[in-house]
Design a protein around this nucleic acid. Structure first.
Length: 750
DNA sequence: GCGTAACCTGTTTTT
DNA sequence: CAGGTTACGC
């Protein structure tokens, strides 16, 4: 097998050991996707496994698409029969086949987060509760959290612990909202994202014959980014592979960044307990980045307490030191980044496509965008307000959804008065009340309005119902594309947009055309056997972005959030907004676990870089529409300062460089490690109440100091390199740290 | 029921 | 700042 030759020893082990449970702990840049790809290729090629019986699960559509491509390039067209997709899309498909077992129709709708939130808002209103106490966001998160841990509304209501928690949070009605939410979703023949996984668990639990069918079908189960699985996903994986036990999970606990969505590192830690004869392979050699980057990342992640032991190292060159960019404002930050990109391209022959700008929040993209535009640097934004979240797209999709599933209450609400036909929210509420009072579905009321709600508004509603009925006929006869075009025209949606001659109106019109094109592509794609509108909707509901970048010129700088960047790599990375309260986000400061997740996110960001990393922070930034001053992120202090070059005016100082080299070598060869180890697990030092940072310009060896986070310590050494003064301090509880005095907040005691 | 205008509120990350 | 929501006049 020629492809095996290109693998290192642990990689090969992970590829070749196809039988039995296997866990691959893969450090950043260690060839994780490569292993997964080759393992599947090996199964098909060397072991003669039918691709039909292999199931590969990922978290994002992007990852699934990329892996499919890579496998196809190794095994060719055979890869077509492989089941590969996100957890959500894979099990949505299975639920569609088996929906009758759950009492759902096969054409159930999938509610996106907006639909869920709107429904919850309605329920809260219906219960006459204050939506400032019961914030829809918070309520949805709570419900989502329960579902991800497989806690049904019945379990929830019967559990006094949850009741007590909710009462403590002044939200005693939470269980009731959860219950009504589930009932309303069921009545609407709709599942939200979490239901897709929750209901798969229910399906397998209550229908042994079905579970058995899939257990025997999927002889080999592979899971990528296993650190991001929640309990619900974990149990599905476990159940599916219970018979054959051929389950292979690949992940990196240091890159677990989706705990907010219910991901649980415990799944990795527990895996060994669940499979006593588990084969564990560690991939520790990084092929992606320079020594500076790998070691800097290591020096950061070491601050986390909960992690699997792992030594990520690289044989690559030392590389350039990490550069810090300091600016006065977010706009200036953009300019500085643009200028640096320009310079890098000039001096190092780097292309736009090899550069990415990463940020914590989507809103940070604006300033960067503007600067790049002015500097004439081509860029593209990944993520953000996705195509399918735009209003006009959701409007047309709601039409299509309703024509496919007349129980879809949220879709109905969206389209019944769109374009305006004189049916206000009052009438809609009446319809829903009438439906509930008579034990009818909303569609039964709407389609027979004269009988159930005689009154003024009946004509408009009757016309609407008539139109929908005609659409229902159309989708029986035509393919998805023809049906959708017909509906877009006949509903008046397209005309309303066409008549809007503003710039936004124009782009909305184009977007709707874009959606229709996407449907056309779906129909024309021979890989899709089922070309019905229902199938299209099912798939599209789980899509966040679309390959809309049809632009010939794809040499563009990439702008995206750190989350979106996971799994990707770029020659140069610009990580912007390195400020307290932004990164780490102020929402994540309340607990150690949250802060550790932010730190892992930082780790992910650093390790995206192949050759050069830039960290940027601004002293002030517009937030909430007001200019606010910011402090440099605590994470900047956590990077071993040997890897940082502070002032760009001071070019490489030979001494610094050789020190770095020496240090890096000592790391790789496993000689004595000088990385300051965190000795104490205390979250942070509690600073003295009168803590005020002192002026450190006169700091000297031997002085006793207090640090905001590390507590008390003694200065061991002062280093001056160019403009930067560094202090090596031995802290009582945190060991030795090298601090850059331009950042570190120290109070001098002696 | 509709449109406009003041108003308020809140920005984490994604399937 | 921007999006969504409410209050009001038509």
């Amino acid at each position: 097998m020629d492809y095996l030759d290109s693998l290192n020893e642990p990689q090969r082990e992970a590829v070749v050991n196809t039988e039995g449970p296997c866990m691959v702990i893969a450090g950043a840049g260690s060839g994780k996707t490569r292993v997964l790809t080759y393992r599947i290729a090996h199964l098909i090629r060397a072991k003669g496994v039918d691709p039909f019986s292999i199931l590969a699960l990922t978290f994002t559509n992007k990852a699934a698409a990329e892996m499919r491509n890579r496998i196809e390039s190794v095994v060719g067209l055979e890869a077509k029969n492989l089941w590969m997709g996100t957890f959500h899309s894979t099990f949505a498909r299975i639920l569609r086949y088996e929906s009758d077992r759950l009492g759902y129709p096969a054409n159930f709708s999938i509610y996106d987060t907006d639909d869920s939130k709107t429904l919850i808002r309605q329920i809260i209103k219906g219960l006459k509760l204050d939506d400032k106490v019961y914030k829809p966001n918070v309520v949805l998160n709570r419900i989502s959290g329960a579902k991800n841990r497989l806690i049904s509304w019945q379990d929830y209501i019967n559990n006094p612990i949850f009741q007590a928690e909710d009462e403590g949070a002044m939200k005693p009605q939470m269980g009731k909202i959860y219950k009504i939410y589930c009932e309303r979703c069921f009545k609407a023949s709709a599942m939200d994202f979490d239901d897709l996984l929750f209901n798969t668990n229910v399906l397998f639990r209550d229908n042994p014959d079905i579970l058995n069918k899939y257990q025997h079908r999927f002889k080999y189960v592979l899971v990528d980014e296993f650190q991001d699985t929640n309990l619900s996903q974990y149990l599905i994986t476990k159940k599916l592979s219970a018979v054959n036990q051929n389950v292979c999970v690949v992940g990196d606990d240091a890159q677990s960044i989706y705990a907010f969505r219910g991901a649980d590192i415990k799944n990795i830690l527990n895996f060994e307990k669940d499979y006593p004869d588990l084969k564990v392979v560690k991939l520790e050699q990084n092929y992606r980045s320079t020594k500076v980057i790998v070691n800097a990342a290591n020096s950061v992640i070491i601050n986390n307490t909960r992690q699997l032991k792992k030594d990520v190292w690289t044989a690559n060159e030392d590389g350039d030191l990490i550069e810090l960019l300091k600016s006065n404002s977010d706009n200036e930050e953009g300019k500085l980044v643009a200028a640096s990109i320009f310079e890098e391209k000039l001096n190092h022959q780097i292309k736009n496509i090899q550069i990415a700008v990463l940020y914590r929040t989507n809103s940070q993209s604006r300033a960067i965008e503007e600067a790049l535009r002015r500097a004439n640097i081509k860029y593209k934004i990944v993520g953000g307000l996705s195509f399918y979240q735009r209003r006009e797209i959701k409007d047309l999709l709601a039409y299509l959804r309703f024509v496919v599933n007349q129980n879809d209450e949220q879709a109905l609400r969206r389209i019944i008065n769109l374009p305006k036909r004189g049916i206000g929210t009052g009438s809609v509420d009446k319809i829903i009340v009438a439906a509930n009072d008579n034990g009818l579905t909303i569609w039964q009321v709407v389609s027979d309005i004269f009988r159930f709600l005689p009154g003024r508004i009946t004509n408009a509603i009757d016309q609407f119902a008539f139109m929908i009925k005609s659409f229902m006929v159309v989708i029986q006869k035509k393919d998805a594309y023809e049906a959708a075009s017909y509906i877009a025209k006949q509903s008046g949606l397209l005309r309303a947009l066409y008549e809007d001659k503003t710039i936004e109106g124009l782009s909305r019109y184009e977007n709707v055309q874009g959606l229709l094109n996407a449907i056309k592509e779906f129909v024309d794609n021979d890989e899709n056997e089922d070309k019905s509108l229902g199938t299209f909707l099912q798939e599209v509901a789980l899509l966040t972005s679309v390959d809309q970048d049809k632009d010939e010129d794809n040499d563009k700088v990439t702008l995206m959030t750190i989350h979106m960047a996971k799994g990707l790599e770029f020659k140069n990375i610009y990580l912007v907004g390195m400020e307290e309260d932004l990164f780490p986000s102020q929402m994540m400061l309340s607990s150690r676990a949250d802060l550790e997740e932010e730190r892992r996110l930082f780790y992910v960001a650093i390790t995206r870089a192949e050759r050069k990393l830039f960290l940027s922070y601004a002293i002030s930034r517009y937030r909430f529409g007001r200019l606010k001053s910011c402090e440099p992120s605590r994470f900047l202090e956590e990077i071993d300062s040997n890897y940082i070059k502070v002032n760009r005016k001071f070019r490489k100082d030979p001494e610094t460089h050789s020190q770095t080299l020496h240090y890096a070598k000592s790391l790789v060869s496993g000689v004595k490690k000088t990385i300051p180890k965190a000795i104490n697990n205390n979250f942070t030092h509690k600073p003295s109440s009168d803590f005020k940072p002192s002026d450190t310009s006169n700091l000297e060896q031997g002085m006793k100091v207090e640090h905001l986070k590390f507590g008390f310590g003694k200065v061991v050494n002062i280093d001056i390199e160019g403009a930067n003064r560094k202090a090596k301090v031995l802290f009582d509880n945190f060991g030795e740290k090298t601090l850059l005095l331009s950042f570190a907040k120290l109070k001098i005691y002696t």
